[in-house]
């Protein structure tokens, strides 16, 4: 769940800074409103600019910008760092309006799909503790695979394969969604992602009903 962890760190830091900036600006605004009202006999300053202060301020902003760019770019690369271990592969094919998940490493070709109508949602089964590489494409229009709990999404294009790697460190079942508007049933184009133990995943690949279907999970 490296995406979730990195998102958490970066979001927390940026939200904190944003809150700080907001509070400072609001405080200055309130100060001006309280102390500089015409009714309080304030007189308007004739000062037109303060270039030196502004220069320092720009320098601070620039330094902060440089830090933010460098640090977030580093976090982005950390997030997309490919693991050494050979990943589990899952091919994801999106279409109007549902998903097909295929497991090319299974002894017999396994895939799960559905209609995304009512409860008929396909389930993407992945093992915990191992990197899983999703290869993402589309059969018609652009879709986007989003698992809010994992804090990550990626678009699925026709005539193009996008891939990303995720590692789930605990068992569970979460909902995934289509995030790119794709037509009439875009709003119901959901799926389940289910993380199971490596043993159970092995059984699942062998064709025993370990995790597919609608089975409730932890």
């Amino acid at each position: 769940m490296i995406q979730r962890h990195i998102f958490g760190h970066v979001f927390a830091l940026e939200a904190l800074i944003a809150a700080g900036v907001f509070v400072v600006v609001l405080a200055l605004l309130v100060y001006a409103l309280l102390r500089r009202r015409a009714g309080r006999q304030a007189t308007a300053s004739r000062r037109t600019e303060r270039p030196r202060l502004e220069a320092y301020y720009v320098a601070v902003l620039t330094a902060f910008g440089v830090f933010l760019v460098a640090w977030t770019a580093w976090q982005n690369h950390r997030e997309h760092h490919t693991a050494e271990r050979p990943p589990v592969r899952v091919d994801v094919s999106s279409f109007q309006w549902c998903w097909t998940f295929s497991y090319p490493q299974a002894p017999q070709r396994r895939s799960a799909s559905g209609t995304c109508r009512g409860d008929d949602l396909p389930t993407l089964v992945v093992p915990t503790g191992r990197p899983v590489k999703l290869r993402l494409t589309s059969r018609d229009v652009i879709h986007s695979l989003w698992v809010p709990e994992l804090r990550y999404k990626m678009d699925a294009f026709p005539d193009h394969v996008n891939s990303f790697t995720l590692t789930l460190d605990r068992e569970g079942r979460w909902m995934g969604k289509c995030a790119e508007f794709c037509g009439l049933r875009h709003h119901t184009m959901h799926f389940w992602i289910k993380a199971v133990s490596p043993e159970e995943y092995h059984r699942f690949l062998q064709g025993q009903q370990g995790g597919g279907g609608q089975g409730a999970a932890a």
Partner: peptide, 10 residues
């Protein structure tokens, strides 16, 4: 910021 955008875009 890409790592935030991946989650909240769209």
């Amino acid at each position: 910021t890409p790592v935030i955008d991946y989650h909240v875009t769209d």
